[in-house]
Design a protein around this nucleic acid. Sequence first.
DNA 1: TTAAAATATTTTATGCTTGAAGTTTATTGA
DNA 2: TCAATAAACTTCAAGCATAAAATATTTTAA
Lengths: 155, 155
Amino acid sequence: MTRTMAQTPLEDASKERLRLWLRLLKTTRGIEAQLRENFRTEFDTTLPRFDVMAALSRFEDGLKMSQISGVLRVSNGNVTGIVDRLAEDGLLVRVPVPGDRRAHRVRMTRKGREEFARQAAAHEAWIAEMLGQFSAQEARTLTTEFSLPEDLHDT
Amino acid sequence: MTRTMAQTPLEDASKERLRLWLRLLKTTRGIEAQLRENFRTEFDTTLPRFDVMAALSRFEDGLKMSQISGVLRVSNGNVTGIVDRLAEDGLLVRVPVPGDRRAHRVRMTRKGREEFARQAAAHEAWIAEMLGQFSAQEARTLTTEFSLPEDLHDT
DNA sequence: TTAAAATATTTTATGCTTGAAGTTTATTGA
DNA sequence: TCAATAAACTTCAAGCATAAAATATTTTAA
C-alpha cells in the first residue's frame, strides 16, 4: 500500500495549487520590479502611468475617467491622481463632455502618443527578453491555459 | 508559399510573449484583489502584513529587519512600517540583538502565531478554490514551467 | 589609535492603491 | 415641479512601495 514517489494524491491538490500561486506571484513580482526599474531609468515614468497611456492608446476618441478605471480595474480615486500628473506633463488632456458637465473625456496629446510609442516598443522588447525562455508556441499555449474564469467582471 | 492559420512564425514570438505577460498580470492581479478583499473582511488585515507573518513563521528564532526585506524582496524602509503596525497589534516583537546595538530580531508572539495559523489555513483554501481549474498534476507541471531564471538574486 | 568604510536601520519625499465620504450634475418618479 | 436617487468625479485617510538621505553602530585598515 505504499505509493511511488512521483504520484500526487488528490489530497495534495490544495498544496500544489498554493505552490503554483506562490511561484506565479514571485515571477510576476520579479518581472514587475524589473519593468518598474526600466521605466524609471529609461523614461522617468512608472508602470501605472504606462498602463493608463496604454489604455488610452487603444481609443482614438479617449475615455471617460470611469471608463479608464473600468478597463484597468482600479479605483476611481486612483485614476484621478495618475491622470492629474500625466496632464501636468502635457501627455494627455481632459476634455469636457458636451451635454454632461459631470464627465470628462481624457485623450492623449500628440506628445503623449509619441512618448507612448517609444515606451511601448521598449516595453515589448523588455518582456520578450524576460520571457525569452518560452518559444512563441509555448507562450501561446500558456496564455490559453491561464484563462481563469476569475475575471470576476465587476462586482 | 502561404502558411496555414495555426502556425506561429518566429517573428511573432515577441508578440506572443507580450500576450502571455499581459495574461499573467491580469490573472495575478485578479487573484491578489480577491485575496486583499478576503483578508480585509475576514481578518481585518492586508496581504503585505500576511507576507511578513508568513516569512517569520518559517523561522522560530525570528529574523532581522534586513533579512525580512531580503526574503520578501521589498525595500528596507517598507518593512519598518509594516513591522511597526504588526508590533502595535501585539502580533510580533522587536528583540535587541546582543552584541550589535544596530540590529533587532523580529519574532512572532504567541498571539501572532495563533492568528497566523488561522490566516494561513484560510489563505490556502481561498487559493485552492481560485485555482480549482488546475488539477494537482497540472499545477505541479505549471509550477515547474514557471521557473524563470529571472530570480535576479539581489544585484 | 583612529579615520574611513561598511552595516543595520529609520526617516523622508513621492507616488500608487483602496474604501469611504463628499461635491456637483443628471435622471427619475410622484 | 421638485424631492429622491443615481452617476461622474474628486477628496480624504490610511497603508504600501520605492529610492535616497540620515543616524547610529561596527568593522577595517593605515
